[in-house]
Design a protein around this nucleic acid. Structure first.
Lengths: 146, 146
DNA sequence: ATGACAATGACAACATACTGGCACAACTAC
DNA sequence: GTAGTTGTGCCAGTATGTTGTCATTGTCAT
């Protein structure tokens, strides 16, 4: 009864909800000087990490989101000049999304803010704790991502 | 350069985003038999843990969300008969939100699904790892919640 | 008491994300 | 090749949550 593991887990779940909201707020604060939002930052980050560009459903799979949500984001980001669409030799209809020069500039400007932020928020946390937490979070992701 | 801590932290941040989405999906799956959603489950849970009921801004503070978001939820939950509003002796305008009998039933039914789910998903995870991860997540929450 | 400040309700606009449905393209198996 | 399955684009509807604004209520220092 009242298994401590069960309580711990539910507590962790609620804390993840809470942390998620706070991280989005942090991301929005970091990006609003750059004309971005945390949602757009995620998309730019995924594209920047790919070499030859990704399709919209491909980005969605990496982020674990619906392709419709990503499509909406890339459409407005194209209107804002951050990304552009490019013919995909592998697929007649599904174009590749690539960063424009403005998109690359935004990504680099963001890194200049994000990297000090990451260091600032981990300076008093032992690396072993970060590793343990990341391992556990990944384990849970695997459990639920089917 | 490329501080391992910095990379670990960014990896953890992205993983928290991912896990958050998966947990919401899990919550929706668990609750849709009960006519609930994960957002309503959060509200019901907070009210159930309070003794005399909470005001809408009070629930919002516990959840770390805007009072407007919670107000919208409680309004539709009242229309669905899960909660009701009660005069607040402490405040003329800000009423208390309390569970109806149907709301309490939903909460108990949810526990019957949620508790086995929590145990099932932690049976192969050492309790020490859960504790370490929870401690770290809470630490980050404190950092960002100001 | 009063005057300044914070909390609340109400309304509006917007951003993010999901699901469903339909048509077409691409792939796989036979 | 053809049939069946999967992937994709597009459109629509809905849920969740944010910010902003304004009037009103509560609180607190003086």
């Amino acid at each position: 009864m009242h298994s401590p593991k069960r309580m711990l887990f539910l507590d962790l779940v609620l804390s993840v909800f809470r942390l998620n909201g706070l991280l989005i707020a942090e991301g929005d604060t970091m990006t609003d000087q750059l004309g971005l939002t945390s949602a757009r930052w995620k998309v730019i980050g995924v594209i920047a990490l790919s070499n030859a560009g990704l399709t919209v459903p491909g980005i969605a799979r990496v982020l674990g989101q619906s392709r419709q949500a990503v499509q909406r984001l890339t459409d407005v980001m194209m209107a804002d000049g951050l990304v552009q669409y490019q013919a995909n030799p592998k697929h007649k209809r599904s174009v590749l999304v690539i960063l424009t020069d403005a998109g690359k500039d935004a990504y680099h400007a963001l890194r200049d803010v994000q990297d000090p932020w990451a260091l600032r928020n981990t300076d008093d946390i032992p690396i072993e704790e970060l590793e343990t937490a990341l391992r556990l979070v990944r384990r849970l992701i695997q459990k639920f991502d089917k």
